[in-house]
Design a protein around this nucleic acid. Structure first.
Lengths: 294, 294
DNA sequence: CCAAAAGTGTTTCCTTTACACCCATGC
DNA sequence: GCATGGGTGTAAAGGAAACACTTTTGG
């Protein structure tokens, strides 16, 4: 009964796998108002299962852990093999193990669930490589429009909850933003993860007071040049395409980039008394979408 | 490479175990002032390893998961078998999996770590049953005075961090208190987990404003009767021994018991700007203890 | 009566929140 | 000029921290 003798007959044949819930941002199918900057919503990178069991259903990318690799290495490898994603270790976070004896009907599998955030560009590249990869709005899973294989439905919900807290306490949200971004882009990313809107003024002051979270990006490449620009049009057009949206109305926003901080002091707490709005927001979005198009 | 075929040769022979970090409260070896109510400190339930590997060293209770049981069932069973503890499922919380290929030199073991809180009474009973069970102050592990087998050192540290957050957001701290308790007892329990003192007045107001967390315990059994008591001495002595400390100076405190809430709204947040005091407190306690007695 | 511990009120300070106002740009 | 969005200031509201004062017991 003790863990000291290691006769192989003593322990049952377990399989250990990793599953990874990768979140990214996509445009909302129904922008709140035309002309307004498109609001984002959270989406998950899913694979369509082949093979014999649960074929054709959506599932999280994942697979067996090799005998000589760490859990995080397995997560990175499986993301690469199954979804074509190449994410750094720092972007992947383990959050729970799932070991219900009946969770896989074929054998006893314990899976260690991870989650990650990545920008839509990276996710879309992955989607083009392997045809069986799809990027699906999270709300469709939460409202039951799409159901996942095995217990991946539950894993995705748990991953979302974990990520919502992660965004409060670490700089993980920056994985959803381009290298250079505006405060509005950052806010929209947070809103997509948290599921409700936050006050713009309050949000801006808070993030700028978090030490080491953001630093101003003064590189001209990303800046929308002031009207009194000393650059000629030819010089301007000789620059590379600016990754941030160059065509927008209204006052151009300052650009920021990732600072040195990994954990946030103070944390970027969302208003606790509005947590209950999270679910209703997802429901509202799905209703609107269903009524209009989608 | 896909997870669809299940040839046994395809997946490597993994062993899956559970390890459980059980925390409890013990009296501090050096009370701050004589006559003052003894301050508590956090302690862990450890076992002394037998067998061949890492024999004689401290380790967390734990062991192999059976083929037909859930991870939480395995945790409960191992706690019972190895430490003599009988805890309900609600008191045990999974928090991470550890799967470094080299974490056990004998074979590939992935362990799913759990943590639990329990009152000292329960823990002491367990200690008397099995001789190899010991209750050790957590500070001795944190300051290196005691080192645990395998990576259990790290697991215990992670468990402590997890529990500190758990106490903020759930009613888990009540597992450390007797059925009926005073606000001071509750506060001392929180202080032991968090590692620093909190203001008494602020703490009292906060916990009483958390909906469903506490409810007043008016049962006379636990009450220290008022001086204008209508009960005779004989009636008083006929009552069972009161579990709460009956001999204390100063105004007797009101008794409370567990309310209906499991998650706390609002959460019982500790002051964030004092988080850094946590480690130094543990260091201070160990220094004091080493200098005086212990 | 005094020490000790529990309970409670008050004041100060800080953060959040909401709102408004101005600024800068495209059309 | 006007609409649109970005940046910032301000006043109100709420909560926490610190401190003091009262209450109730044992000695």
């Amino acid at each position: 009964m003790t863990a000291n003798s290691y006769d192989p007959s003593e322990f049952p044949p377990f399989a250990v796998t990793v599953d990874i819930a990768v979140f990214t941002l996509m445009d909302r199918p129904v922008p709140p108002k035309s002309g307004q900057a498109p609001r984002k919503e959270l989406a998950a990178v899913l694979i369509v299962r082949g093979g014999d069991t649960e074929a054709g259903r959506y599932a999280l990318p994942g697979g067996f852990v090799h005998i000589d690799e760490d859990l995080s290495e397995a997560a990175i490898r499986e993301l690469h093999e199954e979804a074509g994603l190449e994410l750094p270790t720092s972007a992947i976070h383990q959050f729970r193990a799932y070991g219900d004896p009946d969770r896989d009907p074929r054998m006893r599998v314990v899976t260690v669930a991870h989650t990650a955030l990545t920008s839509i560009d990276v996710a879309l590249e992955a989607g083009t490589d392997a045809k069986e990869v799809e990027i699906v709005p999270v709300r469709k899973v939460l409202n039951g429009e799409i159901s996942l294989a095995f217990d991946h439905d539950q894993i995705l919900r748990d991953a979302l909850e974990f990520v919502q807290v992660l965004v409060e306490e670490t700089s993980a949200i920056l994985e959803l933003c381009p290298e250079s971004f505006t405060l509005t882009e950052l806010r929209h990313a947070c809103e997509a993860v948290w599921g409700y809107e936050v006050d713009r003024a309050t949000f801006n002051k808070r993030v700028l007071h978090i030490e080491g979270f953001l630093e101003a990006d003064d590189s001209e490449m990303y800046q929308l040049l002031p009207s009194k620009s000393f650059m000629s049009m030819s010089m301007e057009s000789s620059l590379m395409e600016t990754p941030s949206k160059p065509s927008t109305r209204g006052r151009p926003a300052k650009q920021y980039r990732r600072g040195w901080a990994e954990t946030l002091h103070p944390p970027l707490l969302r208003p606790r008394d509005r947590l209950k709005e999270t679910e209703s927001w997802y429901e509202n979005v799905s209703l609107k979408s269903l009524m209009s198009e989608d």
